[in-house]
């Protein structure tokens, strides 16, 4: 098993008062190292719920999740924090940058929690920013950057700690088509460098950049197939 991510019969039940809602009804799939996967499906089909579990932000109600062969379900919150810090990188639809904090410091953030020293942090952050084409914008605050640039900062932040997997939940959802294309070109380049990417999207032309497409419907996977694009 060379899968970085392996989900087996993952279920997630939300309880609201006396009501129960099963958002994931037995999801199983594996992602091999170096894959670029697009997850699609109607709104409310459970894509984000699944991503949050894969991202160790949420725990499944049942089922097994192995990340790099390790059973995530058995880990305590601190170990999960470590996993998020070292193995995973997040890119959100809403960017989720810290306001009133210079871009470069946003990028440095994972390294702060990894315990690196200031000099090393800055060095790595600058490299990551250059990688996403943001050299020269280091000291801009998020409010002084365009949406596309903000998403690049978020990607640089996801990259900076050399994660095994980047998880992106609708990374282009707030961007126009040209900017979306730029971001996808960047993702493709990163994927070529060996980073595994799992991305949720509603747009077919965005999904087309991925090598494999998984479609969700009502908490279940209804299709899982290569897009035809050779990775």
């Amino acid at each position: 098993m060379s899968d970085v991510i392996s989900l087996t019969d993952i279920r997630r039940v939300f309880t609201m008062g006396d009501q129960q809602f099963e958002a994931l009804k037995g999801i199983s799939f594996g992602v091999a190292a170096g894959e670029f996967v697009a997850i699609m499906g109607a709104s409310g089909s459970g894509k984000s719920t699944c991503m949050n579990i894969v991202g160790c932000l949420d725990r499944p109600t049942s089922g097994q999740y192995l990340l790099d062969g390790l059973d995530v379900g058995a880990m305590d919150p601190n170990q999960l924090a470590d996993i998020r810090n070292k193995k995973l990188g997040f890119v959100f639809q809403g960017f989720n940058l810290l306001a009133r904090t210079p871009a470069v410091e946003n990028v440095e953030l994972p390294l702060v929690y990894a315990g690196l020293h200031a000099k090393e942090r800055r060095q790595k952050a600058l490299i990551a920013m250059e990688q996403v084409g943001l050299a020269g914008k280091e000291n801009n605050h998020p409010s002084q950057l365009s949406g596309g640039q903000q998403q690049r900062v978020a990607i640089a932040r996801a990259l900076v700690n050399n994660p095994a997997v980047i998880l992106a939940d609708e990374p282009t959802g707030n961007l126009d088509s040209t900017t979306s294309e730029e971001i996808m070109v960047l993702f493709t380049a990163l994927n070529k460098n060996g980073i595994t990417i799992i991305m949720v999207t509603h747009e077919h032309d965005v999904a087309a950049y991925a090598g494999r497409q998984i479609t969700f419907k009502d908490g279940k996977i209804i299709s899982d197939s290569p897009t035809g694009r050779t990775v």
Binding site: N78, D82, R84, F90, P110, Y113, N161
Partner: peptide, 13 residues
């Protein structure tokens, strides 16, 4: 939200 971002990125309790 800031706390959430920090936690998602690896901040421990």
């Amino acid at each position: 939200r800031e706390i959430g971002i920090r936690m998602a990125i690896g901040a421990k309790k």
